[in-house]
Design a protein around this nucleic acid. Structure first.
Length: 335
DNA sequence: CACGCGTGGCC
DNA sequence: TGGCCAAGCGT
C-alpha cells in the first residue's frame, strides 16, 4: 500500500498507473482542510475524516507504504500477508523483491524456487499461486500487474480482498477494501457488536461502501486507515480503547461493550498432530535439499504411516510435491 | 458455506 | 501451558 505518512507536497495526483504514494502529503492537507479540528473533536467529524487524520499521524512505516513501492511489490506483499503476520512477512518480502523485481523475473524460474524462497511463511500453496499469477501477468498482461478488479480476480490466488487491495493501494482506485480488521472495526464501531459475523461479501462491501469517502484519494487512505486501526488499536483480543481515535463514535463502547452473541467464525483446528503439521514437516524436508527425498526419508518424519501417506498425497494433489523415480521433489514446472 | 490449509508469537 | 490469532483463498 503506497500511502506513506510522510510529506510530499509536490506529489502528482493519482493518474492511471501511478501509485497513491503521493496521497500522503496531499491527503494530509486535504483531510485537515476538509475538517479543521477533526482530531480535537472527533464527535463532530465523520469517522473517515477522523481515521484518516489519525492514520496520517500514526501509521506504521511499512515497506509497502513507501512511495514508489510499485504494484508488483504490493501484490507480493498482499500474497504474503494472507494469514501471515506483518513482522514475519517483511524480511521475506525484501528478499523476494531483490531476487525477482518484476513478475517476469519470477515467471522465468521454476515454481520450486518460489516455494523454497517462501521458506517458513506458511501455507506454501500461496507461493505456488503467486508464481502462477506471475506467469499469467507476464503472458497475458505484458508483465504489468493489472489494475482492474476483474482482471486481478482472474489471477491464481487472488480473491476479493487482494484484488481490491491492489486496485486501491497500488493504483488509487476508489473501491471498498474489506479485510478481517475492517470487518472487526465496523462490527464494533458501527454495529455495536463485540466481533463480526462470519464474512459475507455482499454485506461487508455494502457496509464499507457506506463509509467510503467520495474522492479516490480519501477513499484509498480510509481503506488503509480502518485496516490499520483494527491491526494496532481495535485488536481482536484486547482492544486499546483508551487510545482509540473514534472512541467517542464507537457504538460498541456506547453500549458498554456487550458480549458477542451471534455465530462465531469457525475455530481453527488444533495444529499438533494434524495433517497440516505433517504436510509442514514434509515440505520442510523437500525445501531443505535439491535432490529427491526418498520414501524412507519421508517415512522417518512421522510415526503414523497412514496419516503420512494422506499428507503426502495431498501435497502431490496440490502440486507442491512431485513423485519422481528417485523419490519426491518440489515442482520443477516440467510436468 | 464450511472447511482445510503452515507457522510461530503472544498472553 | 496451550489455545488463540494473523492484510485469505479455493473448493
Amino acid at each position: 500500500m503506497n500511502i506513506a505518512p510522510s510529506n510530499d507536497p509536490a506529489a502528482p495526483q493519482d493518474a492511471p498507473g501511478v501509485p497513491v504514494a503521493t496521497v500522503a502529503g496531499t491527503g494530509d492537507n486535504a483531510a485537515r482542510a476538509a475538517a479543521p479540528g477533526a482530531v480535537a473533536d472527533s464527535r463532530t467529524a465523520d469517522v473517515s475524516t477522523t481515521l484518516n487524520a489519525w492514520f496520517l499521524a500514526n501509521a506504521r512505516d511499512l515497506p509497502w507504504r513507501r512511495e514508489g513501492f510499485g504494484a508488483w511489490g504490493i501484490l507480493v506483499s498482499e500474497f504474503m500477508l494472507q494469514q501471515t503476520p506483518v513482522k514475519r512477512v517483511i524480511p521475506r518480502l525484501q528478499e523476494w523483491l531483490a531476487r525477482w523485481p518484476t513478475p517476469a523475473d519470477l515467471a522465468a524460474v521454476p515454481p520450486s524456487e518460489a516455494v523454497r524462497a517462501w521458506s517458513s511463511l506458511g501455507y506454501p500453496r500461496r507461493a505456488l499461486w503467486l508464481h502462477a499469477a506471475a506467469v499469467q501477468i507476464t503472458e497475458q498482461h505484458g508483465g504489468v500487474v493489472p489494475s482492474d478488479i476483474d482482471a486481478l480476480l482472474a489471477l491464481t490466488g487472488i480473491g476479493d480482498y487482494t484484488a481490491r487491495a491492489v486496485a486501491a493501494f497500488a493504483y488509487g482506485h476508489r473501491h471498498p477494501v474489506v479485510d478481517t480488521n475492517t470487518r472487526r472495526v465496523i462490527a464494533r464501531a458501527v454495529a455495536g457488536a463485540g466481533e463480526p459475523a462470519p464474512p459475507s461479501r455482499g454485506r461487508d462491501l455494502e457496509a464499507m461502501g457506506a463509509l467510503l469517502p467520495g474522492s479516490a484519494l480519501e477513499a484509498a487512505l480510509f481503506n488503509a486507515a480502518i485496516m490499520e486501526l483494527g491491526a494496532v488499536v481495535c485488536t481482536s483480543r484486547s482492544p486499546h480503547c483508551d487510545i482509540c481515535p473514534i472512541r467517542d463514535d464507537c457504538a460498541w463502547r456506547a453500549a458498554d461493550y456487550p458480549e458477542f452473541t451471534g455465530t462465531r467464525k469457525t475455530v481453527q483446528k488444533k495444529f499438533a498432530g494434524s495433517d497440516r503439521q505433517v504436510r509442514g514437516l514434509i515440505m520442510a524436508e523437500l525445501r531443505s535439499t535439491h535432490r529427491a527425498v526418498t520414501e524412507a526419508e519421508i517415512a522417518s518424519l512421522w510415526p503414523e504411516a497412514a496419516q503420512l501417506q494422506r499428507a503426502l498425497h495431498s501435497l502431490v494433489a496440490d502440486g507442491l510435491a512431485v513423485d519422481s523415480p528417485d523419490g519426491y521433489t518440489l515442482p520443477d514446472g516440467m510436468s
